[in-house]
């Protein structure tokens, strides 16, 4: 409970705990990214099937096509964002202890950022011909 020195009101302390956290935003963001991933994932699977067995040159030309570069960057951003939200829920459900949980969440965030940036960089490097 609050000590007499604590100047924060009970409401102020309750905010950021329990259902006053950002659950709704997380729920909504997960659904919005899921909807966006339906066409992106279908396009990607279709493209991989079509291009299977193609060599280095054909694959590079494919990535370098402007429409494909744009869709790939969109796919990477949406996929990694959706993955971040999903992995966060799994960590919150299964990792016990606040410290361990925080460490796992941080690791997940940093890893997702790294993978997303690396993917975008690779696409841009091919697309811009560096």
């Amino acid at each position: 409970m609050s000590s007499p020195k604590d100047l924060r009101s009970p409401l102020s302390r309750a905010r950021g705990l329990g259902s006053a956290k950002e659950g709704v935003r997380h729920f909504w963001a997960q659904r919005v990214s899921a909807v966006a991933l339906i066409p992106l994932a279908l396009w990607f699977v279709f493209s991989v099937v079509q291009g299977s067995g193609a060599g280095y040159g054909a694959a590079r030309n494919w990535v370098a096509a402007p429409a494909v570069s744009v869709l790939l960057v969109l796919l990477i951003v949406t996929l990694l964002y959706h993955s971040l939200l999903g992995v966060q829920v799994v960590i919150e459900d299964y990792v016990g202890g606040e410290k361990k949980k925080l460490a796992a969440l941080l690791l997940s965030k940093f890893t997702h950022a790294l993978v997303a940036v690396a993917g975008i960089f690779a696409v841009l490097r091919i697309a811009l011909g560096a």
């Binding site: 993955s83 992995v87 993978v115 960089f121 690779a122 091919i126």
Partner: peptide
Amino acid sequence: RVTGVGLSLGSVLLVVWLLALA
């Protein structure tokens, strides 16, 4: 859930493929 976590790992494969291509 399991496929979701698996696909998170799969996104690394996609990015490694792109990096190798680049």
